[in-house]
């Protein structure tokens, strides 16, 4: 049987706030295989972002472990986590989180720098990807000179720069109007359907969740429902 690319094993994330303990995640187990498109839904505060964070090696679980390509993250130090993240995961944020002082091209080149890619290759690759997401004309624009949808496309290009296996998106359309939101979703959908990227996406809207193979419903840090959407998981 195929090994999952990401696996959460009975993960707890507990924030100790002195008087109270917040269980952001309490006992989540999840297997993500290459090519899966998983959508995570649930009310605010249910632990969606926290789940994405642990699955993408941004956050160490309090208990349990997350395996990335079979390796547990809870024993890794900051540098090892950064390396694993940089190589395997591409991040798309609700608020884009581009570097405002850098041009689109420079933003997309950044993760390649972190991976030690040479300057010339960085430029070439970043230009290619920006063209692919339809921003070939905007490479020298700074984020402030781009529309929201364009910014999110730069962010997607940045996420794709190192050709990661997994794309992690936390409400990627949350700050966009419906038209550009739809375009971004189509782009992400294509990444999954055409390029076989594994996608983990948090969303509030059911209609958006429908694109996924699988919809996880979270409540109080637990997976309460797991809908498969037509196609079966491997």
């Amino acid at each position: 049987m195929e090994k999952p690319i990401l696996e959460a094993k009975d993960v707890y994330k507990i924030y100790d706030m002195g008087k109270v303990k917040v269980n952001a995640l309490s006992g989540v187990s999840l297997k993500v295989y290459k090519g899966n498109f998983i959508s995570i839904m649930g009310p605010s505060g249910s632990g969606k972002t926290t789940l994405l964070d642990v699955m993408s090696a941004l956050l160490r679980p309090t208990m349990g472990d997350v395996l990335i390509n079979g390796t547990g993250i809870s024993t890794m130090d900051d540098n090892e986590l950064a390396k694993v993240r940089g190589k395997t995961i591409g991040f798309i944020f609700q608020t884009f989180n581009l570097i405002p002082r850098m041009t689109a091209l420079e933003n997309v080149m950044l993760p390649l720098w972190f991976q030690g890619v040479s300057m010339a290759d960085r430029k070439k690759r970043a230009t290619e990807i920006l063209e692919k997401v339809g921003l070939g004309e905007r490479v020298d624009h700074k984020p402030s000179e781009l529309s929201g949808g364009q910014r999110q496309r730069v962010a997607i290009a940045r996420a794709l720069a190192v050709d990661p296996d997994v794309i992690v998106a936390d409400e990627p359309t949350g700050n966009l109007d419906s038209v550009s939101g739809e375009q971004i979703l189509q782009l992400i959908d294509d990444l999954n359907k055409k390029e076989g990227k594994t996608v983990l996406m948090v969303t509030h809207e059911r209609s958006i969740g429908k694109r996924a193979h699988e919809i996880l419903h979270l409540k109080d840090g637990k997976i309460i429902k797991n809908e498969t959407n037509g196609r079966k998981r491997k």
């Binding site: 993408s56 950064a82 993240r85 940089g86 944020f93 989180n97 405002p100 972190f114």
Partner: peptide
């Protein structure tokens, strides 16, 4: 930004 840079693979 620092959080984003770290997320996309910048080491400390």
């Amino acid at each position: 930004e620092i959080g984003a840079m770290k997320a996309i693979g910048a080491t400390n």
